[in-house]
Design a protein around this nucleic acid. Structure first.
Ligand SMILES: [Zn+2]
Ligand SMILES: [Zn+2]
Ligand SMILES: [Zn+2]
Ligand SMILES: [Zn+2]
Lengths: 131, 131
DNA sequence: ATCAATTGCGTTATGCTATAACGTGTGCGA
DNA sequence: TCGCACACGTTATAGCATAACGCAATTGAT
């Protein structure tokens, strides 16, 4: 997915997420952007949809929140399966990618003739500092 | 987690999930059980909490729904990491467990001194029939 | 037997998350 | 110039989950 020029709203949401310490809910983002003219949830959700499509933002399904992608590359290509550790103490999220897991999941889904479209891997627990 | 005698509400919710073709939302369960005296969401959520604690029900984070555990065993011991394929076409959910993935995730989290409490693996896509 | 603690239950109200449906404006190629 | 795609703004609504209260039944010591 190529990364096109972002619109004003998309830029605002992206900046909010980038400058945040951890993940944010859509409504938290909304509150942060009220001073910039945001009034309704849809403004946030529409921007988030696009940013996810561009691979710049990930949704954390298990906590209904969103986080900026921490990959070093520039998103000119899909990064495969993404996994996260999520600390319940401090909220810190760490993104990682592992070829071995991706391969293994691919083998398992192929065995049942399942066509994968999106894979979610989220590990809840406590980070080193919060253990 | 030992499986104690279920209460009336827990039994009703468990039966509803067991007899369902696929996963159900809490509110869908509520509607199914209105004829049995259910009136409020909390009656469902409280039962679901216990059933999850007993390992008899799993929550699917990516679709806000619940499904009966399909493991053959009797839940007298924790089954490790649970993974699911979820068909977007027919709603069919398949539960599976893989030692290799569990080991790999354990290695990766250990490397960052992360203490895992709950692991979510959900694969959205299309099953053989719906491909 | 009695008291205290635990657990389950029912109810009302509330909060959080996400989308439907409508209309507006803008840019761009046919 | 027309038609289309896309972003945007607004209002309303739908869907998911929990807070807080009180009551009843159970259990398990003392
Ligand atoms: Zn990423
Ligand atoms: Zn932490
Ligand atoms: Zn199971
Ligand atoms: Zn299917």
């Amino acid at each position: 997915m190529a990364t096109p020029q972002l619109t004003k709203n998309q830029t605002l949401v992206m900046d909010a997420l980038s400058h945040s310490e951890g993940p944010m809910s859509a409504y938290t983002i909304l509150d942060k952007l009220r001073d910039h003219g945001f009034r309704a949830p849809l403004q946030v959700y529409r921007a988030l949809d696009k940013l996810q499509e561009y691979g710049m933002v990930h949704r954390l399904e298990s906590i209904n929140a969103f986080v900026a992608c921490s990959c070093p590359h520039d998103h000119e290509h899909d990064h495969g399966v993404t996994a996260f550790t999520i600390c319940e103490g401090c909220g810190q999220v760490t993104e990682f990618h592992d070829e071995a897991i991706e391969q293994r999941l691919s083998t398992l889904t192929r065995a049942q003739n399942f066509k994968t479209e999106k894979t979610t891997i989220e590990i809840r627990g406590h980070c080193q500092s919060c253990a």
